[in-house]
Nucleic acid binder design. Structure first.
Lengths: 148, 148
DNA sequence: AGGCATAAGTGGGAAAAAGTGGGTTTTAGT
DNA sequence: ACTAAAACCCACTTTTTCCCACTTATGCCT
């Protein structure tokens, strides 16, 4: 499971070094086979391949006649790329995905349970600002009674 | 259970010495495995790992399509880090979390039931000021009829 | 009440691991 | 066949982790 944020640097070839704490897990779980795709909020999503496959299957079984579902399918599956960790625990991010998420050098890798998010550092900061005033207004009903 | 506040000092490497009164309990409960994450009020939260895990599970099962829930997931899970007590009962606080909570040296550790809060001392003082005038204005309905 | 013993707080150093950068070979595409 | 990009590999630098030693505090026993 992924959690925690790491500030990382893409190297001159566009490679991303996966934090060491995840490497053994990823080698054991999927031999370093990962899937990168785009997220609607402007970051990338990084899944272990075994986590991604059932998500793709469920997604593609949804109705192809609902325009919003079609758009979601095109977006997620259309941007997905297989990547493999090299011996140093790095993955190459294609120029297509790099330009989608506006990644140049400074990047945040943010663990989110079964996946990680990859953010341009400045965009991540901006995203975090949204927590200011989080408790203003009505809370979503799912959070009623939620205790930390 | 955690209660009471302790004034502690981070050392030059950013390590926090857990008060001795909690150590035996933490070694027995979770072998020193703890989880540190950020709190929206500007402090950090320190959970024994067994307390944290069900909270994370409940959080990650909520809908990923609600923007406010997504923000909360990104914030809490995105900042969570596993830490382990060393032989001297200390945990290392990463520079990411230290800069989030503006921790330099003087720190307050405040017990809060199933978790502790970690505050920069000055911010803790400021937080306490907010208790002045607590009873001004309308009370939340949950406190109606509440007796101490 | 003094001193001794144990436990806690604190600091730092050395070994190991991880981050980083590039050079060379292979593959694919034109 | 030639070019360009990607995969692979190796070496160097930096960071992290683990361990040990010293100082300070606490409490117990004489």
């Amino acid at each position: 499971m992924f959690q925690g944020a790491s500030q990382l640097n893409l190297d001159s070839k566009g490679r991303l070094a996966i934090p060491a704490r995840y490497r053994d897990m990823l080698l054991a779980q999927c031999a370093g086979n990962l899937v990168l795709t785009a997220d609607a909020d402007g970051c990338l999503l990084l899944y272990p391949q075994p986590e991604w496959l059932p998500i793709r299957e469920k997604l593609m079984q949804l109705s192809a006649f609902n325009p919003r579902i079609r758009a979601l399918q095109r977006f997620l599956v259309g941007h997905a790329e297989d990547v493999v960790m090299d011996a140093a625990g790095r993955v190459l991010i294609s120029s297509t995905l790099r330009s989608y998420a506006v990644l140049d050098k400074r990047v945040m890798l943010v663990g989110q349970g079964n996946k990680c998010e990859v953010w341009d550092e400045a965009r991540w900061q901006a995203q975090q600002e949204k927590m200011n005033g989080f408790t203003d207004g009505d809370l979503p009903p799912e959070l009623e009674g939620f205790t930390l």
